[in-house]
């Protein structure tokens, strides 16, 4: 694989993390839709798999996430969104999507950390650390807790969300550092 392609890929994944955590809306439409990010990852998986072979196994899950986020984006104007359209299937489908999302990011970051190790870049350990934080916070946020029930739960939710956003920004930074290290090596 050409190193320039790998650099571009890492940059693209860093921007993917920006796009799935920050949204700019024009009316009801999000101009940084998640499906765009997942679609990009789907296209990038074959290149990524040349560096970390296990990335190939993410294909099915990435397709599911791309389709799901695409449908959510299309039906964003509905009050209850796309999950609401699914009626009684909505909550369990959302739970399945949550676990797919947890796994997807965990493995993607694991693969990126492995690529960093392969090129003797220092950011591999930092990416693994962020991956762990992300999955733990994501799990806690997905627990069936009524976050609005009292002050303690509301504060906990706010704190977890801030940590989640902080971790996302740190992932972006770590990926840009990885790209820089890789280019310097080159």
């Amino acid at each position: 694989m050409e190193e320039t392609k790998l650099s571009k890929l890492i940059k693209g994944i860093a921007w993917f993390y920006v796009s799935i955590h920050f949204h700019i809306n024009l009316g009801p439409w999000d101009i940084l839709p998640d499906w765009g990010g997942y679609g990009y990852i789907l296209l990038a998986l074959p290149f990524l798999a040349k560096e970390a072979s296990s990335a190939r196994q993410l294909r099915l899950l990435t397709i599911v996430l791309t389709v799901w986020s695409g449908l959510c984006w299309i039906f964003a104007r509905r009050i209850d969104g796309f999950p609401g359209m699914l009626g009684p299937f909505g909550p369990i489908t959302e739970s399945i999507i949550t676990v797919i999302t947890l796994y997807f990011h965990y493995q993607l970051l694991t693969d990126l950390a492995q690529i960093a190790d392969n090129y003797q870049c220092s950011s591999g350990a930092w990416i693994r650390h962020l991956r762990t934080v992300r999955v733990l916070i994501g799990t806690m946020l997905a627990l069936p807790i009524s976050w609005e029930s009292n002050g303690v739960t509301r504060s906990s939710f706010a704190l977890l969300t801030v940590i989640q956003l902080g971790a996302a920004l740190s992932v972006c930074r770590a990926l840009f550092v990885l790209r820089k290290e890789h280019r310097l090596q080159r």
């Binding site: 296990s54 196994q57 909550p91 739970s95 676990v99 947890l102 965990y106 493995q107 694991t110 733990l136």
Partner: peptide, 23 residues
Amino acid sequence: KYPKGMALVSVCILIVLAGPLLW
């Protein structure tokens, strides 16, 4: 082919699924 180091996320997935599947 199974990716290595997936123990933590495997447990997290079970924890998240436990709520809707059990209750």
